[in-house]
């Protein structure tokens, strides 16, 4: 297949994943802003930092007003990471790779672009926000369903899957990066209700608060949350899960092409060297250092994939 097409499938998947992740971040931020108005500004700031949009936001805005942050993240056409922009980029990539997509997938992506375009035409009222965020997640689920139900399991499929998991790992790691201080042992001993709310926010940002309690009961501890998000392989947004999936997909491409690439090597190195150790050893080495290193390795892998599979010249 064309390198450009592989790249378009990969980016289409990344953008789709990003729109869903950003919707989750907005949801978590919104919840805090509603319940604890005194920390709302700080919370919105951390949401923007996590989504990599804080710098752009500050260029055009004075303060972290809920309504304005939400509007910026949802539908600002000048914000290249707003959900509206991201969904459009997903659709542009899908159009470029149209010949590699089934009709069902293309129609799901196109419908999602049309539906969200209509929903986000005007500023979203606070009362409507939960519905709009639900619609964004639902559109994303429809695309995923069409993708998994109708696509041939060929190299194109694998490139798209790699895009999904790279983006997701990046997102989970960024959430940890912004909130890691909450998980540090020095503050973990308090166990006060304030921290519980903050920890719940972390879990909500990855739609995993229910799963966590189901798994660990009512006990919320920093170590367990970190373990859950970093190492727990049954959790579909954990770093370990994403890395394992990515390596599976890279492995399938290696077999199809009968070609060892640097990307394949780097992918398995991330799993082996960074994620095959107990959580305590990660804490001992420094949680922040671990996350920073992971983000760097993940980004380096992304670049290597683009080079090895000739996405661009």
């Amino acid at each position: 297949m064309l390198g450009k097409t592989a790249g378009s499938l990969y980016w289409m998947a990344r953008y789709l994943e990003r729109s869903e992740n950003n919707a989750r971040l907005i949801d978590a931020g919104f919840r805090i802003a509603l319940t604890r108005s005194n920390t709302a500004a700080a919370e919105w700031r951390s949401v923007l930092v996590t989504a990599g949009q804080d710098y752009a936001f500050k260029q055009t805005h004075q303060d972290y007003n809920s309504q304005r942050v939400v509007d910026f993240m949802l539908r600002d056409p000048d914000n290249p990471s707003s959900i509206l922009s991201v969904v459009k980029q997903a659709r542009d990539n899908a159009r470029t790779a149209r010949t590699y997509l089934t009709r069902e997938v293309w129609e799901a992506v196109n419908t999602s672009w049309m539906t969200l375009g209509a929903l986000l035409k005007r500023q979203v009222r606070e009362d409507d926000l939960p519905d709009v965020l639900a619609a964004i997640r639902q559109q994303s689920a429809l695309v995923r369903g069409a993708f998994s139900g109708t696509m041939l399991r060929n190299d194109g499929y694998n490139f798209a899957r790699i895009g999904t998991f790279l983006e997701r790992a990046d997102n989970t790691a960024r959430i940890l990066d912004v909130k890691y201080y909450l998980l540090l042992p020095s503050v973990a001993h308090i166990g006060s209700s304030i921290d519980n709310v903050q920890w719940e926010t972390i879990l909500r940002s990855v739609s995993a608060h229910r799963a966590y309690h189901w798994l660990y009961g009512t006990e919320i501890s920093a170590l367990k949350i970190a373990e859950f998000l970093i190492l727990y392989k049954q959790m579909p947004r954990s770093l370990a899960f994403c890395c394992e999936q990515m390596n599976d997909n890279l492995g399938l491409i290696r077999r199809t092409y009968d070609e060892e690439t640097e990307a394949v090597r780097m992918g398995s190195a991330i799993c082996r060297e960074r994620l095959s150790r107990p959580i305590q050893s990660i804490f001992d080495g420094g949680l922040h250092e671990f996350i920073t290193d992971f983000l760097r390795a993940n980004a380096a892998l992304a670049q290597q994939i683009e080079r090895d599979y000739r996405f661009v010249e």
Partner: peptide
């Protein structure tokens, strides 16, 4: 394949497309 100009170049006397 659906190609654009930047997918193509002349390689060994033939017009060739950049694949993965």
């Amino acid at each position: 394949e659906l190609v654009e100009g930047h997918d193509l170049r002349v390689v060994d006397g033939r017009v060739a497309m950049r694949t993965t």
